[in-house]
Amino acid sequence: MIYWYFTLLTFLLVVLNVFSSEITFELPDNGKECFFQEIKANTTATLEFQVVTGGQYDVDVTLQDPLKQVIYQQAKMQFDSHSFTAQRTGIYSACFSNEFSTFSHKIVYMDFQVGEESPLPGIGDHVTALTQMESSAVDIHKYLNLIIDLQTHHRLREAQGRKRAEDLNERVQWWSIFETVAMITIGVTQVYILKNFFNDRKPFVAGR
């Protein structure tokens, strides 16, 4: 009995030791943000990221294995995804750097997925073949997951567009206020400077 618990426990821990961390964080100008994740050997992991707002929507990304060797490195990327299989057990790090940018602060979305999705309790350990009903339910589940993933992407793209539009709106407003003020001031000063030329003749006389 005890033996059973332990085999099952280790099995479940291995299977359930999966993680999908979706995180959206702010990256200040000149900032660098690192995230760490323990991955067991031979587990497949996927790192996905996308810059939501800020500057040229780009960021430097570095993925390192436990021995500090670079697995994946990209400079000034807007979005990307990278899958890899862990060669050894240990702490993997994903760093996002904005060190090349001196004034634009950014918002970055990151999804670090490790391993397969954990099975539902009571389903992962059953041995008999799935019935047709069950297997189509599993299929539907997979497709729904795909839909949710695509929705996330869509949402981020939409957020990009919307934030830019809001920016544009504000800029148009400020620019128009500024330019109206500038036009009136220039117009009035022009006239007064011109009048001054004729009122005060000395500089003209002296000039001749």
Binding site: L120, G122, I123, E134, L144, I147, I148
Partner: peptide
């Protein structure tokens, strides 16, 4: 098991609709 799976599917669809 099957009921639980369907329950999960419902939750997913619900979330998709909200989104």
């Amino acid at each position: 098991e099957l009921q639980l799976r369907i329950r999960q599917l419902l939750d997913q669809v619900d979330q998709i609709t909200k989104e």
